[in-house]
Nucleic acid binder design. Sequence first.
RNA 1: GGUCCUGUGGUGCAGCUAGGAGUGCACGCCGCCCUGUCAAGGCGGAGGUCGCGGGUUCAAAUCCCGUCAGGACCGCCA
Length: 592
Amino acid sequence: MMRSHRAGSLRASDDGSEVTLCGWVDSRRDHGGVVFLDLRDVEGIVQVVVDPSRAGCEQAHRVRGEWVLRVVGTVKRRPEGTVNPEIGTGEIEVAASGLEVLNESEPVPFPLDEHAGEVDEGTRLRYRYLDLRRPAMQLNLLLRSRVNSSLRDSMSRQGFTEVETPMLIASTPEGARDFVVPSRLSPGSFYALPQSPQLFKQLLMVGGVDRYFQLARCLRDEDLRADRQFEFVQYDAEMSFAGADDVMEVVGTAVADAVEAATGERPGAFPRMTWHQAQERYGTDKPDVRFGMELVDLGPVFASTGFRAFQAEAVKGIRVVGEGAASRSRLDALTDRAKGLGAAGLVWMRVGEGGALESPVAKFLSDDERRDVVSAMAAEPGDLLLMVAGERRVANHVLGVLRLDLGRPPVSEGGLRFLWVVDFPLFEGLADDGSPVPAHHPFTMPHPDDLALLDAEGVDLLGVRSQAYDLVLNGWELGSGSVRIHRRDVQERIFTLLGIAPETARERFGFLLDAFRFGAPPHAGFAFGVDRLVAILAGEENIREVIAFPKTQSGADPLTGAPGPLDPAQLRELGLAVAVPQEATTRPDPER
RNA sequence: GGUCCUGUGGUGCAGCUAGGAGUGCACGCCGCCCUGUCAAGGCGGAGGUCGCGGGUUCAAAUCCCGUCAGGACCGCCA
């Protein structure tokens, strides 16, 4: 072994020990006659005291930041008055008897101290191997590793079998845009990379696996966001002879185990809320219940209003506490935001003393309406009231977004508020051709109470509920699951409703329908994003902080230069010709 | 596809509203001094295509147009 101890793990109890340490120079303080070197390894930092005149220590003056050193020395308690309570090793220091330079380092392009989080992220990604040396990033990687092992342990304990599913699969046009891989052996044919192992895990159920899980790599070619990367890891599970409650029990246990492993504290039982409640109270299917500011239905207040803008399907509002002093330009910006989200407009009211309302529309409202709106929204002087009228789903959506804009706490505040959202609708809307669009995926079992509605005439299909459920944490959609259809006849009925012709269904999902002919067990499952869970546990607003080598928002990797053009010979072998102009296929300029 | 924010020595910023010589601050870097610092200190020094292109102007980091990159968001993400 090159070392006897970890630098960051030394304590006062090691006083007198002869140690050999390896690590990086975190900082140096050269006093001429004595040199202090802070040596950093994965465990932390320890102060090394070097006398450059001592044999074996001659290099001390040469040493610079991020050089790699091997230090031999004796652990000593620090002299009176020089203890550093800021670091774990602050009671001791290492008196060096030998100092070996294992590798030198050029000056690093950005500081690796606690301020590195403020450095331009493009620069951090270009030198990610340096960024990862920072303790904050090391902690995030460690946290992620703990969550991964805890999930695996928990699922094993709960009787689940980890099964790996293929990365090269058939493309299906549903859902997200596929990443595709050309086939060399079948030129002109392509594989797709999996958006999720959905179909395979259902086939595993038919295959008698009974309880499956996997930490599955998934890929979707859609625009990136703070909480979305092209590739991400899903905790993916499926169980036979089980219903929604069984799945929520298993997943809740696994998540609670992971949270406990990561934070030391076990969350309580996850409350449930129906999808309908979530929309009405929070204007979203992933409510952040760390704060109030719930949407208020003002329909009763304005039921017979003379104000035209409020003669709508729905009038709803939110109360922004203490924001009554918001400037006109601020209110204009909020109005623009609301319009950008699809609202016809935004009505604002400042609440004054005695409940007096100041608003451009106040003159259109009756005395009763002005009084009732104040009481309906429990408004106090100094508050700002924001209202949207129009289609119910639009009003909910717009106010839901404004609520987050105006009230959402930072990710590291407000604790961990898990929430099951249940009773999702089976369909989320109608496509241009009038056929319903599945809210989850086309293998979702309708709610048993609503099954008959599917065959009835003249029924509003958008009111049909499904047996789908989401897990939400602090306003982030962690994941979703459902009871699956396991009977061929029901599955074919759904395909018909979705406007997928039998021959099309056969072409795309024939293998699944075939499998269902041979005794498919009732089954249900779930999947959630591990990156998102780890990010929230780490207190990060952005999943890139918990991914070792993430992509930028434009899908590039500043470190490796991906994506890049392909060699002509490679293209030929794959039977491909590139149709876009050459300059569009060159690598991004690494200088900017 | 769209909206918004950002781009100034290696890093983080200020300068831009009101055009006047690459001006300033902090950190880092290089050299010298220094035996108790821990963001060491002192003295000295180097380091710039103000992202890129065009326009307006006697004069552009600054104003205008375009473009590229990074970020946040909308659309998209069954």
